[in-house]
Design a protein around this nucleic acid. Structure first.
Length: 474
DNA sequence: CTAGGGTTAG
């Protein structure tokens, strides 16, 4: 009965059964208890699962494993619970270990993983395939590809699709995409996940054409794509700015009855916006029946990139009204919108709100946007003050931005101050010398210009084009 | 009861 409930994912029916079982006293049975645990765990009711577990008169290993499984999204809780298991003298089996290893991989800590590995050897749990795969995953997640490779070799007799996929994804994370492809091509059995992984790897590595090529190959081999495939393929179209192809993919999604979930919807919005069709992006946005912070941020970014700062702002306001909490990426988009559209006051207020109301630590992207906003508006002294708040390693680039702004606004005095600072701060970079040379030329300080030209010649033998002409933006 | 894949940012 309870099995039927969890297969249907019906929590309410399960609760009815739970009540009935409690009345008849059947709930003291371990099997019934475990079934209930699974029901709550699989429907995301982790707190209920925990309460039930704590109140169970009898528990067996399956009860512990089921609770571990319920905590699968919370790696720290898994490790805490496992420590308690060891403390209470409950020896885990290979199922517990798979969950625990997975948690170690998510946290990325090798120490605990190694500790657990030692425990597995000590207790003598047979390294079943699932356990070896989980360990393989821990190694790849911790960047220990040598260890992963040798474990993979040890597993030669029992490797499956999952082992291969874990290994080549490890190489992808290291940036060795060709190595990854080599493993992928050698796999005699490929499933949906391995295809999706390899396609996505090309998208991540900025090889969108190869991603699309592989997608076609997947179709030729009659493997049915799913939503995850579509997200990667849409991202590939977006980075190629290939609207025709993007529309074809959209049609493909509709024709094959693939779900337009949050991921697919967001990828569609991004694709249309990046391919230049803001209208289709916004139609997609408004058609979606649920939207999360990614969806909103993507739409705001699209509006910003198309120069609609005002619309981006009102969408941001709408988002807040709907109770969606913006994150740091949202603020990058909205500040970018302000910077592009010259919305000085709004940009400053939003920056303030980000720090004060949302307690988001400004990252260099945010600082850069605000600096841009101030510089373009000619608020150069405020920009100068602002640079003082930036981390030292960003000050050079920030001062270059400010110096360019000084040139655009013909602010020689401040410009000279910045230029002097830059001469001291800066490494002997070409770009800096050229910028300084241009500034001094604009300010009519020919002695300094000569000095900078000499510096340019010293740092590079190559002739730098354009050095003798002064670029004045009008 | 367990393991591998997906969305935002010059």
């Amino acid at each position: 009965m309870l099995k039927a409930c969890w297969r249907m994912g019906s929590l309410s029916k399960g609760k009815e059964v739970h009540a009935h079982v409690t009345k008849t006293g059947l709930d003291s049975d371990v099997y019934v208890g475990n079934a209930l645990l699974h029901l709550y765990g699989s429907t995301g009711q982790v707190t209920d699962a925990r309460r039930l577990f704590d109140g169970m008169p009898h528990r067996d290993l399956a009860s512990w494993n089921t609770l571990l499984g319920a905590y699968n999204d919370n790696a720290v809780e898994v490790l805490v619970l496992f420590k308690r298991m060891m403390y209470e003298g409950i020896g885990g089996d290979h199922i517990s270990m798979v969950i625990v290893f997975s948690a170690c991989g998510k946290i990325g800590g090798t120490e605990f993983g190694k500790e657990v590995h030692g425990y597995v050897i000590k207790v003598g749990i047979r390294p079943a395939l699932s356990l070896s795969n989980a360990l393989l995953w821990v190694y790849t997640r911790c960047g220990e590809m040598d260890a992963a490779q040798s474990l993979f070799v040890e597993m030669a007799a029992m490797r499956d699709v999952v082992s291969h996929t874990i290994l080549f994804n490890g190489y992808v994370d290291m940036g060795s995409i060709d190595l990854a492809r080599g493993i992928f091509d050698q796999m005699s059995v490929k499933d949906l996940v391995s295809w999706n992984s390899m396609i996505h790897a090309y998208v991540k590595a900025k090889h969108p054409k190869k991603a699309l090529e592989l997608f076609r190959k997947m179709e030729n081999e009659m493997v049915e794509p799913d939503e995850t495939t579509m997200v990667s393929v849409l991202a590939a179209c977006a980075s190629l700015a290939d609207l025709q192809n993007g529309r074809l993919v959209h049609r493909f999604i509709l024709q094959n009855n693939l779900r337009q979930d949050l991921f697919v919807g967001t990828a569609l919005i991004d694709m249309y916006a990046k391919c230049g069709s803001l209208e289709e992006a916004m139609v997609t946005f408004y058609k979606m029946d649920s939207r999360d912070v990614f969806t909103w941020t993507t739409a705001i970014e699209g509006l910003a990139n198309h120069g609609h700062g005002d619309k981006a702002l009102s969408l941001f306001t709408k988002m807040e009204k709907q109770g969606i909490k913006p994150n740091q990426a949202t603020f990058v988009s909205i500040l970018m919108a302000c910077s592009r559209s010259g919305l000085v006051k709004e940009g400053c207020l939003l920056f303030k709100r980000m720090v004060e109301a949302y307690q988001i630590q400004p990252k260099i992207e945010h600082l850069g946007c605000l600096l841009d906003i101030l510089s373009r508006a000619g608020l150069l002294h405020q920009a100068e003050e602002f640079i003082k708040l930036m981390p030292p390693e960003e000050k050079i680039i920030a001062n270059k931005t400010l110096l360019s702004a000084c040139m655009n606004h013909l602010e020689y005095d401040l410009g000279e101050k910045i230029a002097n600072g830059l001469t001291e701060l800066s490494s002997q970079s070409h770009a800096t010398h050229i910028l300084l040379s241009n500034f001094y030329a604009l300010a009519g300080q020919w002695a300094e210009v000569a000095k900078m030209r000499r510096a340019v010649k010293e740092t590079d033998i190559r002739k730098v084009p354009g050095i003798s002409s002064v670029d004045i933006k009008t």
